[in-house]
Simulated assay, not measured.
Amino acid sequence: MEIWRQFSNVAMMHGVKRGRGEPPSIKIQTVDGKRYWLLPDGSMTVEHPTFSAEPGEYGTNITVTARDEREAQRMAKEIANKYPKFEPQSFMKAAIPTETTLEGVRSARQRTPAAHN
């Protein structure tokens, strides 16, 4: 087990299969200090979801970065509690999965003009 922990990064990067299911995801940190998860399929995702709300020309611009659709849906429901005019269903329909320079890191973004305090 100790050998696997020490070499799991190398094994995952080279696609070494384990006898007992998928290998665990590995936390990594880039040279600029950002933290991600390296997933068993070789893709990467953010370590933690993020949320920001900034005043915009037509209301509040809300940006969500989630690791998957289920997490984005949960966050949309939480945002609706804080912003009564925010519509989670509309947000999810208009959400645009994007990838940054690190393949697999996804972000759902949408301008939400009706989200006023």
Rank of each mutant, 00 (worst) to 15 (best):
T63S: 12
N117K: 06
P40Q: 02
E71I: 11
A94R: 13
I79S: 02
E47P: 01
N9P: 06
S25D: 06
G21I: 13
Q89W: 01
N117M: 05
F91S: 11
R18P: 04
K93D: 11
P40C: 02
L39Y: 02
R35V: 14
I62D: 05
N9A: 09
R20H: 04
P97I: 00
D68R: 03
P23E: 11
M92Q: 07
R18V: 03
A94K: 13
T101I: 06
P97C: 00
D32Q: 10
E87D: 15
R35E: 15
S90E: 15
A114R: 11
E78H: 03
T98F: 11
P113M: 09
P55D: 06
K34E: 10
T30C: 07
T63Q: 07
R111L: 00
S107D: 02
V64E: 07
T30F: 08
P40S: 13
T50G: 12
N61C: 01
G56K: 02
E54S: 08
M44T: 11
M44V: 07
A11T: 02
A80T: 03
E78A: 13
P23D: 07
V10M: 13
P40M: 04
M75I: 15
H116L: 08
S107E: 03
A76P: 10
N61W: 05
I79W: 01
I28S: 10
E103Y: 15
H14G: 12
G104L: 03
Q89N: 08
R70H: 12
T50R: 09
P40W: 06
N9S: 09
R67L: 12
E69N: 02
R18S: 14
R111V: 03
Y83I: 06
S8G: 03
T60N: 09
K17Q: 12
M13C: 05
L102E: 11
P113Y: 10
L38V: 00
A115Y: 00
V46L: 10
V46S: 06
H14F: 13
V10H: 11
Q89F: 03
T112Y: 06
M12I: 06
I62Y: 07
V16H: 02
V46A: 13
R74I: 12
P84E: 07
Q29W: 08
N9Y: 13
G56D: 06
S43Q: 12
V46W: 00
V105N: 10
E57H: 02
N61T: 02
V16R: 04
G33N: 01
E47Q: 09
L38Y: 04
M12S: 14
Y36C: 04
H14E: 14
G15F: 04
Y83K: 04
R70L: 12
S25E: 04
K34Y: 01
E22L: 14
A76E: 04
M12F: 01
D32N: 10
V16C: 03
H116Q: 11
G59H: 05
Y83F: 15
P23K: 00
Q29T: 15
A94D: 15
Q73E: 15
T65M: 10
E69I: 13
S107A: 12
T65R: 10
S25M: 07
I62Q: 05
Q110I: 14
I26W: 11
I26A: 05
Q110M: 15
K34F: 01
D68I: 07
I96N: 01
N81Q: 12
E57W: 02
A94L: 10
M13I: 08
A95M: 02
M13L: 13
H48P: 00
T50V: 05
